[in-house]
Write a protein that binds this DNA or RNA. Structure first.
Lengths: 203, 203
DNA sequence: ATAACACTTGATTGATCGTTCAATCATCGA
DNA sequence: TCGATGATTGAACGATCAATCAAGTGTTAT
């Protein structure tokens, strides 16, 4: 039987993931992680050389979770590849509602907080963003000629991510979903315009 | 002659503004601000009750600077109200180039870093975002019937801010302007589609 | 039985954090 | 000339920070 992945390591990652999202990276002390995970400092530093490595571990976990936790459920719930974009945004919206607009995108938060200070972390955050954009790009390509031939699908996939992150950011301080909803409505209008344009091209 | 506004206070605000942008709020120690401003701790705590109040002062400074430093130059350089959107985005882009994609939007950074931790700061950040959206909204209303009647101008102004912030966020970790440029190109395509639609309505 | 190894314990480190405050200095009106 | 006031000085505070490590525990292979 293969040795089970260290459950201590998992417990630390679980707790750190949650606390980094709730309070940010710098604001989360090692001692808090230790207390809430029920682990002692030596164990943590046995599993991770330092706090930065712990953050990298958290980011790799987000990477691994993207497909099974985010994308697969969306694809199962919505067959239309273009509509999946808005199903994804609605899923994100419901997350915001559930947390009272207090949290945000864990990746986005870290991107702005630590991308300069901890250079080793930057590529990991970038990989997370790339994965999101790649997954959305697959949907856009699946849509085929329902988008105009001239439409840069990679740029559009990036755009979806941009709208999601930018909208979320404003929700954090506005304490209402209005900025997010307004932004998604504009994106919807844009995609509709693209659809109409593609319809014209197909005749 | 009216007494000059405390130059010590100004020097502290200047330095704090720069350091908060370069390193973030939490990562910037009071001692660093003191050293770089050439001021002693007593003077800082004479001008500000605590670090949070200093941050509020910085945010009020950004608010005051929006029109004279950002919007007025754009309006002077570009007469077409719709084109001003992209002049503004280009101005932001040039800022990114000048800093090697290392910094970002100072307001956006703070929004994600401290909006939960320091509740007194949240409204100040929100006011900054609102000011940006309000200024852009003026341009959109100036455009009159060059936008479709059905176009929600407030939502569109919000959308511009969303694209700017969301694009910038990804640039930070991607270390290239591609995500920003791609997002702006999509926004450009959307605005063009709105223009065409409005043209049709005007006949 | 024993040696090797992986992991845990938890007190402790030095550094740095934001903040305080008694003392000092500069400027002004009376 | 003499307070009065506002601003500056800078040593010091307790708290907390990330990180260390010698000692101990549990498991496994031989």
């Amino acid at each position: 039987m293969p040795a089970p992945v260290s459950e201590t390591r998992d417990k630390i990652l679980d707790t750190a993931m949650r606390l980094f999202l709730e309070q940010g990276f710098q604001a989360t002390g090692i001692s808090t992680i230790l207390r809430e995970a029920g682990v002692h400092s030596g164990s943590l530093y046995h599993a991770f050389p330092n706090k930065e490595a712990l953050l990298v571990g958290v980011l790799q976990r987000y990477q691994a979770g993207l497909r099974p936790i985010v994308m697969d459920p969306v694809e199962q719930a919505e067959p239309d590849p273009l509509e999946r974009i808005f199903t994804l945004l609605a899923w994100y919206r419901s997350n915001m509602v559930a947390t009272g607009c207090r949290l945000g995108c864990p990746i986005g938060n870290l991107a702005l907080e630590v991308s300069d200070t901890y250079p080793a972390v930057r590529p990991e955050i970038d990989k997370n963003f790339e994965n999101w954009a790649d997954a959305i790009l697959e949907w856009l390509e699946e849509a085929g000629d329902r988008l105009p031939a001239s439409c840069d699908r990679r740029a559009l996939s990036r755009f979806v991510l941009t709208v999601m992150e930018g909208g979320l950011m404003q929700v954090r301080t506005h304490d209402s979903l209005e900025p997010f909803d307004q932004s998604v409505a504009q994106l919807r209008a844009y995609v509709e315009a693209l659809r109409v344009q593609a319809d014209g091209e197909r005749q």
